[in-house]
């Protein structure tokens, strides 16, 4: 399926990616060629085939409901772009 520029703008928004106007056309072309490759799947006969999520069909392990994580807040915040009083800072969201 070929995408148009509008599709790409919408996908970029959903993915929260800035794509410059000057790059939209080339991006559209390349994404369309990748989707062209993916389209070969359509012809595959998959009626009644169980989708595969894990090679050995393992299921999610459960563990005791106890605290295992230790506190690393100060350490983790040292590598954050902006923090204050133990909180991560972002531009104002609520007026």
């Amino acid at each position: 399926m070929a995408l148009d520029k509008e599709d790409v703008t919408k996908i970029a928004h959903l993915a929260r990616l800035q794509v410059a106007d000057s790059e939209i056309e080339a991006t559209t072309e390349r994404l369309s060629s990748i989707l062209g490759l993916i389209e070969q799947l359509e012809a595959a006969p998959t009626d009644g085939v169980e989708p595969m999520a894990h090679p050995t069909d393992a299921v999610q392990r459960l563990r005791e409901d106890v605290v295992t994580e230790t506190n690393h807040r100060d350490e983790y915040q040292q590598i954050a772009p902006a923090t204050e009083g133990g909180l991560y800072l972002v531009p104002k969201v609520i007026e």
């Binding site: 996908i11 993915a15 990616l17 991006t27 990748i34 359509e42 085939v49 989708p51 999520a53």
Partner: peptide, 30 residues
């Protein structure tokens, strides 16, 4: 990286999940 994020976002977006991700998981079984 941006290209792959966009392909993935598209494949998982509303209305396309069955045609892409689920289909690919079935092919994976094959």
């Amino acid at each position: 990286v941006k290209r792959r994020i966009m392909i993935g976002t598209y494949a998982l977006s509303a209305g396309y999940y069955d045609a892409y991700y689920l289909k690919a998981q079935k092919v994976r079984r094959l």
